[in-house]
């Protein structure tokens, strides 16, 4: 749990993908309404940088998105979350997870063949 999206940096967002996230949704306070003045503006710039990195390395830029909400907009949060989950589902697993799942399947097959012989 972070007290402010201003704490998020590019490395933290990329670490989420390294740790197996298919998508990352960053939710900050409404612009102009940051308790720490410009935390959410900084976060937006960092999310945009990661968007470009994901595009360059073909992981898919649409796997990351930033939204701005106030604490009282629970309904809108749910609708944003559902829309983002749909978007990531349409994209499918990240290329990292595809490779990992293929490798895991191969390892299982090898182990099964080993036991059979």
């Amino acid at each position: 749990m972070l007290p402010c999206t201003g704490r998020i940096d590019e490395a933290l967002l990329l670490a989420a993908f390294e740790n197996g996230a298919d998508g990352v949704m960053v939710i900050g306070c409404l612009e102009g309404d940051c308790h720490y003045i410009s935390g959410n503006i900084r976060a937006r710039a960092r999310v945009e940088r990661v968007y470009k990195i994901l595009e360059q390395i073909k992981i898919g830029p649409d796997r990351i998105r930033m939204y701005n909400l106030s604490a009282g907009e629970g309904e809108r949060f749910a609708s944003y979350a559902n829309a983002f989950v749909d978007q990531v589902r349409n994209l499918g697993p990240s290329p990292i997870n595809l490779v990992r799942s293929t490798n895991a399947q191969s390892a299982v097959q090898t182990a099964v063949q080993g036991e059979a012989t």
Partner: peptide, 19 residues
């Protein structure tokens, strides 16, 4: 230091995605 983290993470992701 921050750029090291970002670049290393970017390289790891790109390389793993490429198998």
């Amino acid at each position: 230091e921050k750029e090291v983290q970002v670049l290393a993470s970017t390289i790891r992701l790109a390389r793993e995605a490429a198998g």
